[in-house]
């Protein structure tokens, strides 16, 4: 591509279309979109929906990598469509498919129910326990206490990590990278006393122990949460706890 007459040039797209009840399986359909170097894949899809085919379905909201709605497979890699620039995929075509490992609602829209149910199951909120928050003042944390969980709190639930995870692909029961990282986020919050309530699930075979540390979750994470690191950290903690419970059975909980 030469610079200059960029508006007259086009870039090809192969976009997965699927309407349950009518189509037996998703099929790729070809579209041509005007090429603009500042456009991202989401811009191209919005152009198509506005100008070419209003039935094209996809989720999006913020356009700036905060809401986590616009995840899709771009050329086979889980990406936020708002962060995937057309200029990085020259000369095209760009293949856009729904996030892998999820049932498809329609076109690029996936069914989130499994993730939502698992997220709820690990109680991703602060459980104060028998030390309720002070009534007349804010809860204070040191910078070190904040740093202990802040990275995990950056998760935007975009599910790119679930699409990249080969364990989740084979094992539906696996809680998965984002849920385990978020459980770790609350376990490590100094205000939280809910660890034991979460560990029954997160330290089980369907939790951290299903993970084989492939690390693709952290490779695709757009917010640098490092779910693989969170799971490894939890494995160490669970193992220490196991040995403590065996070697030091007195005065436990």
């Amino acid at each position: 591509m030469t610079s200059g007459a960029t508006t007259t040039q086009t870039i090809g797209f192969e976009i997965a279309r699927y309407l349950p009840g009518e189509d037996r399986a998703p099929t790729l359909r070809h579209y041509d979109v005007p090429y603009r170097p500042e456009w991202v894949v989401l811009d191209a899809l919005n152009y198509l929906k506005d100008e070419v085919d209003g039935t094209l379905s996809f989720r999006w909201s913020c356009r700036m990598g905060v809401c986590g709605s616009c995840g899709a497979m771009v050329n086979g890699v889980p990406r936020l469509m708002c962060a995937a620039f057309l200029r990085d995929y020259l000369p095209g075509p760009i293949r856009v498919e729904p996030l892998a490992n999820f049932p498809i609602e329609r076109d690029l829209v996936i069914v989130l129910d499994d993730f939502m149910q698992k997220l709820r199951a690990v109680k991703p909120w602060i459980i104060p326990g028998d030390r309720p928050p002070p009534a007349d003042a804010e809860y204070r944390q040191t910078p070190a206490q904040l740093a202990d969980f802040k990275q995990y709190s950056m998760c935007i639930n975009c599910l790119l990590c679930y699409s990249a995870c080969p364990v989740y692909q084979h094992e539906e029961e696996f809680l998965g990278p984002a849920v385990l990282a978020l459980a770790q986020r609350y376990d490590h919050d100094s205000r939280d006393r809910g660890n034991s309530q979460r560990h029954e699930l997160t330290w089980s075979d369907e939790g951290i122990w299903d993970c084989t540390f492939v690390g693709e979750c952290s490779a695709v994470c757009p917010k640098h949460v490092d779910p693989a690191g969170a799971i490894q950290q939890a494995k160490v903690e669970s193992t220490m706890d196991w040995y403590r419970s065996v070697l030091w059975p007195f005065g436990r909980r």
């Binding site: 034991s196 560990h199 029954e200 330290w203 089980s204 075979d205 122990w209 494995k235 669970s238 193992t239 706890d241 196991w242 040995y243």
Partner: peptide, 14 residues
Amino acid sequence: MRRSPEPVFWSLFS
């Protein structure tokens, strides 16, 4: 609490 035996194997693996 449902204990996974995996910590034993994992710590030896580590």
